[in-house]
Design a protein around this nucleic acid. Structure first.
Lengths: 316, 316
DNA sequence: TTTTAGACTGAATAATCATTCCAATAAAGT
DNA sequence: ACTTTATTGGAATGATTATTCAGTCTAAAA
């Protein structure tokens, strides 16, 4: 059989298969071949470029960018949303929040126990974008203390709102974010109300976390729940580039504090690494190094960010 | 939630499946979906044209056939595509459309102004096979009126779709195909909207035209844009064997109507002869005489047809 | 409000496809 | 001429994908 005839046969098979939608068995029957031959021929068509499959990339969808980040940092999934070229902080948070809401609404299972790190504007924006009643969860649990001594209840409200939207119980963490001392923390960890919630951390399926800078976010600053200048200086000296739930890590993603020196009540970085599914939401040029650190630390399973930040992440 | 997010997910799934070769189960796992969802999404991608599968007809399989037609009719180029022995009309149109798309994608320059005669199933099929974003053009212009009195906008849509695929402006011809009378036509030719477009006909580099029978095509019949019985009879009496853009010619390829009796707004046969590059797409045994006429008239620079029709063309 | 039709979902299963295995044949080397 | 090695074909099998089904939810209609 000549090479041309061979090729013609391949084209014929490919046409019948892809254009006419025949099953391999039908084609085999028609052309007096075995089904396996047809299967092999189709494979060959793909390899030899007789059949071309292309995925049309609509503008403002950035699969390639996502792919690059996934490869570079070994993150299972990255979602990049479109923003204009000089986005405001607010625009970014809205875009990411909306994408995160979409992601959650399409992937949440009723049996999921969701943990949220409550001091993030982006997560707040996500909650705003969620459609109440559309999906359910098993529960929402606060991954970081949020009842400030100065009567701040923002974080609690966020958790409760989300639980309402998902028609499930909310589990609050009745503690400050940062306790006075490690001793204080230990004591609190043994009080009822705190201990039950902390014990649930290991059951959290999905953790939704923001990624923060050394500089505290607006929400945090207003709450008074953040480290004092001296400690911040110390963290900076140890190379901290960002935080997740107030646990600071360096450029390689390593926690800069020993457990014994950490006064924060909340899910630890170590626990996060063992959590089944961690969704990290963060965007903005200033957060690039913080995000990279989080990725390197292997804390994130899905990164949701904006185009401009994503482009900055892959630039060295 | 938003349409963009929805599409983004589809594109991502399609990319992972077709480009990265992941199994549906792996994708489901990665994106936290069920395998069924992934399968259904892929089907949707195919249906919505997010994924395009093209079977490339290897060129020059029928060199002898092509060569004979070129010699016999002095056509610069003939492309013959393979079809089975008793092809359905639909099969033929798809095969030719796909070959035409391939031809276009490999020969179009960014500076080309493309004219399409909009009432052809084959051209529609070609447009379906084009991959959006793969190539660009300067513009797409409608060579034949397409706004029917009965609200028909098919032709307009085809032009617009093609322009979108080629990322270029579309130039519509806001007129019916066949006007009430020659007077009516003259009047319309002077209205703005029509005159600008008609003036561009001479700048068209590449005209893509179907070749029609005296009997109107399905598309035309449905639109109501065709001659009445009496006129058709008259055309037949004058020996009309086929048409290009509703301009009818006889077996020798000579226009059967004087300019003064022609109520059609669109590129004339004379203009077509002077057009740099005319691609004629047509197939089917019933079209043999119409195709021969078009070839004899010297209207076609590239004929794209199917094997069975080609064989019939060279049989006397 | 209740009803009904339609649209989704995921689990299970049916259908389809890819691959393995082995025998047969052909090509190349000794 | 006779191995040896490579290639090919097809049945059986294992893997993957599409579809069905039963249940849930939504939204329109009564």
């Amino acid at each position: 059989m000549s090479k041309v005839d061979d090729k013609r046969l391949l084209v014929k098979i490919a046409t019948l298969y892809y254009q006419d939608g025949l099953k391999q068995a039908q084609i085999a029957d028609k052309l007096r071949l075995s089904q396996s031959q047809v299967s092999r021929s189709i494979t060959r068509c793909l390899k030899e470029g007789i059949v071309k499959i292309n995925v049309v990339q609509p503008p403002n969808v950035f699969i390639a960018l996502e792919h690059t980040i996934q490869q570079t940092f070994s993150v299972p999934n990255v979602i990049v949303v479109d923003v204009e070229d000089n986005p405001t902080d607010h625009t970014i948070k809205r875009a990411i929040g909306s994408a995160a809401a979409y992601y959650l609404e399409n992937s949440l299972k009723k049996s999921d126990l969701i943990g949220i790190s409550s001091w993030s504007d982006t997560i707040r924006s996500m909650v705003d974008s969620l459609t109440p009643g559309k999906i359910q969860a098993k529960g929402v649990i606060q991954l970081l203390g949020g009842v400030g001594h100065n009567g701040n209840i923002q974080a609690t409200i966020l958790t409760q709102t989300m639980a309402d939207i998902l028609s499930c119980p909310a589990h609050m963490l009745p503690a400050q974010s940062i306790e006075q001392s490690v001793d204080e923390k230990e004591k609190l960890l043994n009080t009822s109300g705190v201990s039950e919630v902390v014990a649930m951390f290991d059951d959290v399926n999905i953790a939704i976390v923001g990624i923060g800078l050394l500089e505290p976010s607006n929400l945090l600053r207003n709450s008074g729940n953040y480290y004092d200048k001296t400690t911040l200086k110390m963290l900076a000296d140890r190379g901290a580039v960002g935080d997740i739930s107030l646990h600071y890590y360096n450029a390689s993603g390593v926690d800069v504090l020993e457990p014994s020196e950490n006064p924060v009540i909340g899910m630890t970085l170590n626990q996060l690494q063992h959590c089944e599914h961690v969704v990290g939401v963060a965007g903005g040029i200033d957060k690039v190094e913080a995000i990279k650190g989080a990725l390197r630390g292997g804390y994130i399973d899905v990164l949701i960010t904006d185009r401009v930040t994503a482009e900055a992440i892959i630039r060295r």
